[in-house]
Design a binder for these strands. Sequence first.
DNA 1: CCTGAATTTGTAATCGATTACAAAGCGCAC
DNA 2: GTGCGCTTTGTAATCGATTACAAATTCAGG
Lengths: 389, 389
Amino acid sequence: MPTSRRSAKTPPRTPAAAAGRRTPTDAPNGTPADPAARPRSRSATDGSGRPALPKIADVAARAGVSTATVSRALAAPDSVSPDKRERVLAAVRELGYTPNAAARNLRAGRTSMVLVVVPKLANPFFNGVVRGADEALTAEGFGMIIGDLDNTADKEHRLVDIALAGHIDGALILSGRVPRHGARTMKQAGIPMVGVCVASDDPQIPAVLIDDAAAARTQVEHLVGLGHRRLLYVSGPRGNGNEIARWRGFTEAAAAAGLGAEAIQRAEGDYTFAAGTRAADLFLALPAERRPTGVVAVSDEMALAFIRRVAEAGVRVPGDVSVVGFDGIEVGDYCAPRLTTIRQPSRDMGREAARLLVAAIRGEPSPPGARVLGAELKVAESTGAPPRR
Amino acid sequence: MPTSRRSAKTPPRTPAAAAGRRTPTDAPNGTPADPAARPRSRSATDGSGRPALPKIADVAARAGVSTATVSRALAAPDSVSPDKRERVLAAVRELGYTPNAAARNLRAGRTSMVLVVVPKLANPFFNGVVRGADEALTAEGFGMIIGDLDNTADKEHRLVDIALAGHIDGALILSGRVPRHGARTMKQAGIPMVGVCVASDDPQIPAVLIDDAAAARTQVEHLVGLGHRRLLYVSGPRGNGNEIARWRGFTEAAAAAGLGAEAIQRAEGDYTFAAGTRAADLFLALPAERRPTGVVAVSDEMALAFIRRVAEAGVRVPGDVSVVGFDGIEVGDYCAPRLTTIRQPSRDMGREAARLLVAAIRGEPSPPGARVLGAELKVAESTGAPPRR
DNA sequence: CCTGAATTTGTAATCGATTACAAAGCGCAC
DNA sequence: GTGCGCTTTGTAATCGATTACAAATTCAGG
């Protein structure tokens, strides 16, 4: 019934547009089908007298200047006389004006948004990176769109579309397996990218990394130093960039310690809890005398699940078997035993990568080559001397 | 004055467009300093002859139709003859065309983006919600901007700005403490919102919840059922909506079980590991005979940290004290003892909330009132009978 | 063969900002 | 007083899509 006054003044919008911004509950007519068709949600006075979202022209009118002056007063205050600048800012404040993002993006060709591609957001390690990135991006005036691949390939398309549609100014790629096709396409489109924890095959793409091989060597050296001579390596997915480097580091250090092929076992994993459990089952299936006494896992989640599973079977950690994790997630300190692990500076990595990306977006040439941050061994309770027998 | 005759008959292209798709910036530059001055990152031939990002006019030209037809062929295929539709789609494919988001948003007033406000992304529970939301949003053709409040108040401003700038069509609020000011402002701007795990004080904002009070009662009943008569409640932050309901449920159930005030203790917490540790210290400071034998924590992280801390002090779980958590995060199954907890259907909640939001964005009237999903007690190993003595 | 409705297509207006360009204002030196 | 250069301001073009409107086409019925 209240629909009568809507045509009073408004230009020939569609009915739905004129109805615009009412509470969804007061659907006027009985027809259940008045679907979608809400062309523009903004700028309708909606009968209540409440002003619509102000636009730059409104501000200009109120301040008694041109739209150009308003725009300048906001973007480059120094180029406007103090007098008008004040008037503009006052008008902005009074009206609660925020420049429309779409219009700005369209004209200026920038969005001040960054896409962060995460293989698995649920992983606390990536979480740390994201937080670091968020911190830096926020400080630089950028927003963040998160794309959680969640190990699903088809999400990639969507993310690339987001990029190609000009939603974003740049992308942060946290994936160990860089979306090949996607990265290619995005690069062709000239979208700046920075990798985190991932040495891209493309040297053009800067990256923030730790030295995976060195970290894996450290894991081995720690165990060997405690006296362990038979090791189990719980891997990441085959082909994964980090995995490759870590496996290399592992084998190098094992060889350097004089461990032969017979002293080394490998369980295939993929960083998840489930993989850790599987590795433990593999371990438990071995006859006791052939069991490794030291376990190198390339993620904390696998290490925790491994520990949990063997403990259930009566194997003590670190009494019977020592386990080193990788990442340094917070919860590792709240399980028993506390997890010995490689602590990656996830937050720093995210922050640093975001800064590099912003620099690239601004066109500042960045010094080539990857930034390598330090990772350290954090010794806790899940490792100790091997059983004597 | 020069504008007068351009609408005569010939295609009124701009000079640049007529010149065969050159970049606006390809002035005769001999200067080596070209890096800065990159007004628009898109559409540069970069000397290699590689074509710039195609626009709708390019597609139209290639398909031999008008831009309107291209737009329609993509948005409403049935309104275009099969013949032209095919030609258009082929051209789109060949050129790798993706409609520019800014232009579309500006004109159509929609962005197909949703803001998800998370109090703390690092919390695996919120992670589950986000994943569920992502799932549903992706399916509906929406993208997701995540705003991690990270318990910092000033982030809120930025998020509201993002909303007001028209970056998004709607918002999902996962905060227990809805940003008051922000929510108000966004509501005034007519931005659809849906709450998750949060009963908004505003009945207009639909929400997806569990019954917090009932869940807390279940926690108590479980412990009481095992024979516990002295309980410790490890709380959320004061004033938090969930906290209020859970505390109510806790006290109700305790009263119903005939536990007097002297049988109940309360430790102030905030859902974090650190709070769990603090609660444990408080517990340990009590003389043994006054110690509660059952602990109700309102987050798994607090429960895990509590267990860890008291275990260090030689208190056995569940031998000496039983602990029930809240949330059902994955890692609870990989710590020793496995955590007994309230499993919230986080993923379902996210999915459901996203669907509600999309419906609201599309203007479909949603049945009023909150959706209450079921939470269940998951009995594991951290609870058992109280010590006999 | 003609008329009117239904369908398909094209032309051009439009969204709301930024910014190129030109005009106006101002100060200073000749 | 005039002319030059610098700063401030306004006018209008522009970004790239969607879509209102009108024109063109098709088709059915009389």
